[in-house]
């Protein structure tokens, strides 16, 4: 059995190549912020970030630090803390290639990858300008019914899925509970990198209660024990609230690129 455990988030993301596509979790799920800092420290470049289906602080940090080439998402903002300042600024300056989507299209694209099929049909979307900006989304006639146009979403197969989860056992099984978009990400991605709050003594797959919310180890490439790896974001499986003063300080600093750079240098130190 390969030992999936690495000692630090820096080791966890060490071989994420520049230009990789990386699927990341939404703020209500498991966002790997400590590993995001590691990506910034290693000066990752031209990442194709795929928010599943939206992102916040994580995307803003990576964009401001110059790590992102393509942003694929249904939206980026800081939730109750307002607009994501670096995302907004970079797009307005034309410095970021946007691949705008809608939430269910990202879920559906990952589901197609999960099934190993090239595309998946999805209702809605027709008439939206998203279709103009997404030439990879096609409209066909439903072959089972006359005169029924329907959108096709191509499979999304990320190079890497990166997220934070509550538990992993020593065999490399990872427990995500009801945060099943994390399981979808792991199923769809070529490699899955996970930081976890805690190590579970025993086998997560032998207890049926836990097994239902467990990603089997064969989907998981690497794990790093990193308690608090989502801070300053909240982590609802652990009942953790977001660190509001810290995020507010970020929002104030990141209004300008210079403010962001200074804040980031302090934060990475």
């Amino acid at each position: 059995m390969p030992d999936r455990y690495c000692s630090t988030p820096d080791v966890l993301v060490a071989d994420v190549a520049d230009g990789s596509s990386i699927a990341v979790a939404p703020d209500y799920s498991g966002v790997a912020i400590a590993a995001t800092r590691a990506l910034i420290r290693k000066q990752a470049r031209r990442l194709h970030l795929i928010a599943v289906p939206q992102s916040g602080l994580q995307a803003d940090l990576l964009i401001g630090a110059g790590c992102v080439g393509i942003m694929e998402c249904a939206g980026v903002n800081l939730g109750e803390f307002g607009l994501a300042p670096r995302f907004t600024d970079w797009v307005q300056q034309g410095r970021l290639t946007m691949r705008d989507a809608t939430c269910p299209a990202i879920h559906a694209g990952l589901q197609a990858a999960e099934k190993g099929v090239p595309f998946i049909p999805l209702r809605g979307i027709l008439g939206s300008d998203l279709l103009n900006e997404r030439p990879d989304w096609r409209v066909i006639d439903n072959p089972y019914q006359h005169d029924d146009p329907i959108v096709l979403i191509p499979a999304i197969k990320p190079d890497v899925a990166l997220f934070h989860a509550a538990l992993a056992d020593r065999a490399g099984n990872v427990w995500v509970g009801i945060r099943r978009e994390l399981m979808l990400m792991a199923h769809a991605a070529r490699r899955t990198l996970v930081t976890v709050e805690a190590i579970h003594d025993g086998d997560l797959l032998t207890d049926p209660t836990l097994a239902a919310g467990t990603i089997p180890a064969f989907y998981v490439s690497r794990i790093c024990l990193e308690p608090g790896g989502m801070r300053p974001l909240g982590f609802s499986p652990a009942g953790e609230q977001a660190d509001a003063p810290m995020i507010e300080a970020y929002v104030a600093a990141a209004r300008t690129q210079a403010g962001f750079d200074a804040h980031l240098a302090e934060w990475l130190a």
Partner: peptide
């Protein structure tokens, strides 16, 4: 419009994004 004011590629003002609207509005 939840995306942008002005040009899509280099907008005058960028909003967060469409989220689920393009889909839920139909369903």
């Amino acid at each position: 419009n939840l995306v942008a004011i002005g040009d899509y590629v280099k907008p005058k003002r960028r909003f967060p994004g469409s989220f689920g609207s393009a889909y839920l509005y139909h369903l």
